[in-house]
Simulated scan of single mutants.
Amino acid sequence: MNTKLLMSAVAASFIALTGCASNPTNAQIGTATGAVLGGVVGNAAFGSTLGTVGGAAAGALIGNEVGKKR
């Protein structure tokens, strides 16, 4: 169990550090912002995991499109 936890932490750290390798584009920023805001709104509106995930997915799509246009 400890080995799986350690490997998960190492993988998450590697992914997080890899994301810092370059400056994000407007589309990437829009996707991340849209996913967070969509998840919050989906959770507030529906109060379930499905609402949160659906809101995050919809927000990511909308944020990506808005970010591409800038």
Rank of each mutant, 00 (worst) to 15 (best):
L37T: 13
M7N: 05
G55T: 06
F14R: 00
G42E: 11
G30A: 02
A45H: 02
N26I: 11
V10Q: 03
T52N: 12
G59V: 13
C20W: 10
G51W: 12
G39K: 11
C20M: 15
T3V: 01
R70Q: 06
F14G: 08
K4R: 03
A32R: 00
T52P: 01
G67E: 05
G34W: 05
G34S: 02
L6E: 04
N64R: 06
N26S: 09
L17G: 00
G54F: 08
N2F: 06
S22N: 04
N2E: 10
A32C: 05
A21V: 06
Q28V: 12
T18I: 03
V10T: 04
A56L: 08
F46T: 11
G47I: 09
G51E: 07
T52W: 07
I62L: 13
G67F: 14
R70E: 01
G47E: 12
T31D: 02
F14V: 14
G59R: 10
V66H: 02
S22D: 04
K4H: 04
V41Y: 15
A32T: 07
A44S: 03
G39R: 13
A12P: 10
N2I: 02
L5V: 09
G59Q: 11
T18P: 00
N2R: 01
S48M: 07
C20E: 06
A9M: 07
L6S: 03
G30F: 06
G55S: 08
A57N: 04
G47N: 09
S8L: 14
T49K: 12
V66C: 05
T31F: 11
A35W: 09
N43M: 14
A21I: 03
R70M: 14
G38F: 14
L37M: 05
A35T: 15
P24N: 05
V10I: 15
G51P: 05
G55M: 12
A45Q: 10
R70C: 03
A11G: 00
G47M: 13
G59D: 10
G63L: 01
V53A: 15
G39M: 11
M7C: 01
G34P: 12
M7Y: 11
S8F: 09
L17R: 00
S13D: 04
G59M: 07
V53N: 12
V53Y: 10
E65L: 13
A45G: 04
A45I: 13
L5K: 02
A16L: 08
L61R: 03
T49S: 08
N23I: 04
L5Y: 06
K69H: 06
L50V: 14
A16H: 03
I29P: 00
